[in-house]
Design a protein around this nucleic acid. Structure first.
Lengths: 221, 221
DNA sequence: TCAAAAGTGTTAACTGTACACCCATGC
DNA sequence: GCATGGGTGTACAGTTAACACTTTTGA
């Protein structure tokens, strides 16, 4: 026999570094170890609903980008029983998120994806796969905006891409590419409170993207 | 409570038409209806192993491209009980495949993806999603070769892509693109038995692709 | 007026695409 | 020698990539 669970890869970005939210188990075979926040599936809910539940009970966030990554089913991935788990990934702003450990958890916090603690079970493997998927996805769908406030500058947006993809981008070319997509709305406002020229603020509107998509537009890089 | 199953999307190509292999159930709530070949997961096997088993018991094929598509978990996707199913997709040559119905099945055969019978449960939905994924994948990974014999002409290869993607491609440009990848091996043989100039035969070697990939090559279209 | 970051212009290289054309072969 | 499909050359258009440059603003 087997049990079915979900695990969430919750990505965030701070100070130009891509981070992931992890929890530390208090009980069970992985006691003291860090891992992905997840839960058993309940009667009457789909896997998507279970993943959203584990996310929203911690953050209050609803209506967020959340996508299935993969289902992991190796016989021996859990030391005590057979657990089939479906992993989901999402992108949020750490600032919007009151991090707190659940009742069965010692601790909960963000880690840079470049400096991870040892992870329980096959969670390291799941994370690697999630990173790969995220880096593909972020280039082909406008999901990076989930890591930013509603209004943002082009420089902030560029930093997100540089952090997620772990590459350096050329500023003038990035600007043009983004603006030529006609995807961003100019807020007609300027940044305030910095010691140099203020940048224009833009915002992303999902319905504009949907509109463009029906006309054959494909987001790229 | 719930059960876990796997379902296979087995794609093939014949006469320039993309086809899928379906079975017709003999018993149960979907009796008489067509659907994807699948099975319950067994103790001691992963989902991947279960998918390979349902494929190989029908075809004898092993060592084939097989990839997880998605896990479907809607509460009401099955009329009688709760079934979570993970779908896999694969590409094979119908000619290599002795189609036969299983012991619980009335019939089994290939259908053009453009002329499908009504499908059981949410299998129509799974198939649509699989088609989308296949069309993306085939452009970014060299998996189209699974639909061809070991030795093939460039025209045959082009036909595969036109059938899968449902588009028309330009011959000279397709040739150049393929050959410039340095992915194909020239067999130094010619086609025989047709009423016009014989075409060169090529073959695909997975290890060459793996080699190129480690050097940063990415297959595209 | 200087530093820092916003924002613009220009160019050369590359790639995609369309299409005209030549070549080999069986009938 | 002609129809059929294999195979090549070329030229234009659009995109990418690199980088030099100008502008704005707070300190």
């Amino acid at each position: 026999m087997y049990s079915v669970s979900v695990d969430n890869l919750i990505f965030g970005c701070r100070d130009g570094v891509l981070e992931i939210f992890l929890i530390q188990h208090a009980h069970g075979p992985a006691s003291g170890k860090w891992g992905l926040p997840g839960d058993w599936i309940k009667d009457g809910e789909s896997l998507e609903e279970a993943a959203l539940r584990t996310l929203s009970t911690r953050t209050g966030i609803t209506d967020i980008f959340l996508e299935q990554l993969h289902t992991f089913s190796s016989i021996d991935r859990h030391p005590e029983e057979r657990v089939i788990t479906t992993a989901y990934y999402t992108l949020i702003r750490p600032q919007d998120f009151a991090t707190m450990a659940g009742s069965h958890e010692l601790d909960a916090r963000w880690f840079s994806v470049n400096q991870l603690p040892p992870l329980m079970y096959d969670h390291q493997h799941i994370l690697q796969r999630g990173l790969l998927k995220l880096r593909q996805k972020v280039r082909h769908e406008p999901i990076g905006f989930n890591l930013l406030p509603a209004k943002f500058t082009l420089a902030e947006l560029q930093k997100i891409y540089e952090a997620v993809l772990n590459i350096k981008l050329n500023k003038p070319n990035f600007r043009r590419k983004m603006l030529n997509m006609n995807l961003l709305i100019d807020c007609l406002e300027k940044q305030t409170g910095q010691a140099h020229r203020a940048a224009s603020l833009y915002r992303f509107d999902q319905s504009i993207y949907n509109d463009l998509k029906t006309r054959g537009f494909v987001f790229e890089l």
